[in-house]
């Protein structure tokens, strides 16, 4: 799907959030100077094509009490990684799941899954669930916890209208 100038204007108007008014798509339409039907049609199309992953509320993990956030990394056979990654992604406590390249010999891990929990005990259980799911397909794993957030500005795309 090729984005045009109007799509980019919709992105620009909504990337910080959806208007909190009864008819939000009308509000966006009014700002851009097109009809609400056009906004609805274009956003539906962008969602169908994966430009919009989904429209949703993103909670602050820490505010909901999720203090234990770990990056679990696994060394699994490339041949089975897609099958395993798809299964891992289905777990409700996994927020991101990716196949990434190894950097041998120091970094043998190719499957990354971010997990979130409220207690240390719970995160250990989550890692056990993952371990069991991956079973003998996993030749080794590690869990990296963030000890400090040094920067977090988010992925705001700037100047997209002129791009």
């Amino acid at each position: 799907m090729k984005l045009d100038a109007v799509d980019r204007e919709i992105i620009q108007q909504t990337q910080a959030g959806l208007p909190l008014v009864s008819k939000p798509y009308h509000a966006i339409a009014e700002k851009i100077g097109i009809t609400a039907q056009e906004v609805i049609r274009r956003m539906t199309c962008m969602q169908e094509h994966g430009i919009i992953r989904r429209i949703a509320a993103i909670p602050n993990h820490y505010r909901l009490g999720y203090r234990f956030n770990g990056m679990t990394v696994w060394d699994v056979d490339d041949q089975y990684i897609d099958e395993l990654g798809a299964k891992v992604g289905q777990l409700t406590f996994v927020s991101h799941c990716y196949h990434r390249p190894r950097h041998l010999p120091e970094w043998p891990y190719n499957l990354f899954a971010m997990v979130h929990s409220k207690t240390e005990q719970e995160i250990k259980i989550q890692i056990d669930v993952l371990s069991e799911m991956l079973g003998s397909y996993s030749r080794g794993h590690d869990v990296l916890y963030s000890t400090r957030i040094l920067k977090k500005t988010g992925l705001r795309i700037k100047n997209y209208v002129s791009a």
């Binding site: 799907m1 909504t14 990337q15 959030g17 429209i55 993103i58």
Partner: peptide, 20 residues
């Protein structure tokens, strides 16, 4: 919930690569 920061955001999540 947005003002007090319980929600970090509410709206469409765009796919960076899909946008180029």
């Amino acid at each position: 919930l947005l003002d007090e920061g319980t929600l970090s955001r509410f709206g469409p999540m765009y796919h960076a690569e899909a946008m180029g």
